[in-house]
């Protein structure tokens, strides 16, 4: 497998959030300002309704360099990894919230050296834990026993698999990724994941492998279930369809392939107020590897912190203020409100 460099390591201008924001900036991408559309839909300001999910991005280190990655994660992103001290601050916030869902993401979150310790801690507190897993990490020699660990602690696995064929999966995630993903899925199935009655949820994530929107979630789930079962003997619980956000490496792809303005027009043209009503930032608080707070993982990668009127670091966590905070939006938010909507839990409308 050829290891690609991240935008940061290749000193690409789009590694800088301000460069991305400039390209996305109001009026520059050929679509109306997102806030204007929200206002017209009677939804401005967009406000949070609670902190039911604490999504913690534990770092940007990953064993893959996927072409659509909004984090610009990769093997060269070794500098950004959540420290034990910041995890302790997260734990303190979790105790104050009272059993929020803990959604662990990255990079490959399992590569953080404190991952297993933290999972044990939040499971002891009775939290439901989600691991956003790239699958191939389960096969890495230093990660031996990881799948068994996840099963033992009843961790929900949400795994990326953009398609049920090798060509499209490998085109997005790197040569050979599909075969390794199948091996990891079989390993998870062997532990009970994705099997009815096991209590071990294995949910798959579909991302379009190009400049187009995702299919209807229910229809595609039926296709995935049939094809994965008959072709490969693989089972899973649910399929989530996610829209690619026009930021970071996916933004680079859009620009290089000449699809940027068309994609933005497509997203904006498919604005759905019902999807906007259900956006995940209203119930989720996103924590960065250094403890900074964001409305979502996308804002995090664009370094757009939560509103200045509320606590902006996990050490200052105060649930009341953060639960009703005004969500900070931008042009990239069209990605979550297009068509059937998109969130870390799939379609929202």
């Amino acid at each position: 497998m050829i290891v690609e460099l991240s935008l940061l390591a290749s000193q690409h201008p789009l590694a800088l959030p301000e460069q991305q924001l400039q390209i996305l900036g109001n009026g520059k991408c050929g679509v109306k300002p997102f806030d204007e559309v929200l206002y017209e839909a009677g939804m401005d300001p967009l406000a949070a309704t609670g902190v039911g999910v604490l999504q913690i991005n534990v770092g940007k280190l990953c064993n893959q360099t996927c072409k659509h990655c909004h984090v610009d994660a990769g093997p060269d992103r070794t500098a950004e990894n959540m420290s034990r001290e910041t995890f302790e601050l997260c734990l303190s916030a979790v105790r104050r919230i009272g059993r929020p869902i803990i959604d662990l993401t990255g990079g490959a979150p399992e590569l953080n050296p404190h991952f297993r310790w933290f999972v044990e801690q939040v499971r002891e507190l009775g939290c439901h834990v989600i691991d956003r897993c790239n699958l191939t990490v389960l096969l890495l020699a230093p990660q031996r026993g990881l799948a068994e660990f996840l099963a033992k602690h009843g961790v929900e696995v949400i795994a990326s698999l953009p398609y049920f064929l090798a060509q499209r999966t490998d085109a997005q995630r790197g040569d050979g990724t599909f075969e390794k993903s199948l091996a990891a899925l079989r390993k998870l199935n062997g532990l009970g994941y994705g099997q009815p009655g096991s209590g071990l949820a294995l949910n798959l994530v579909y991302n379009p492998t190009g400049a187009f929107l995702p299919p209807d979630q229910a229809a595609l789930e039926a296709d995935f279930r049939r094809e994965l079962r008959t072709r490969y003997g693989v089972e899973f619980s649910s399929l989530y369809t996610l829209t690619n956000m026009p930021i970071s490496r996916y933004l680079d792809f859009l620009i290089r392939s000449g699809n940027f303005r068309r994609y933005m027009r497509k997203l904006a043209g498919a604005f759905n107020p019902v999807a906007a009503e259900g956006v995940m930032c209203r119930t989720t608080l996103s924590v960065g590897w250094d403890g900074t707070l964001y409305d979502c993982d996308f804002n995090q990668m664009l370094e757009i912190g939560v509103s200045k009127e509320v606590p902006r670091h996990i050490r200052d966590f105060r649930e009341v203020e953060l639960s009703t905070r005004r969500v900070v939006t931008g042009q990239h938010c069209y990605g979550c409100t297009a068509g059937a909507g998109s969130s870390c839990g799939g379609a929202t409308a």
Binding site: L165, R168, P208, F212, L213, P215, A219, D223
Partner: peptide, 12 residues
């Protein structure tokens, strides 16, 4: 072509 991809069809 766009619509087929957005309905979950593949190149085959």
């Amino acid at each position: 072509t766009q619509d087929c991809l957005e309905k979950g069809s593949n190149l085959e």
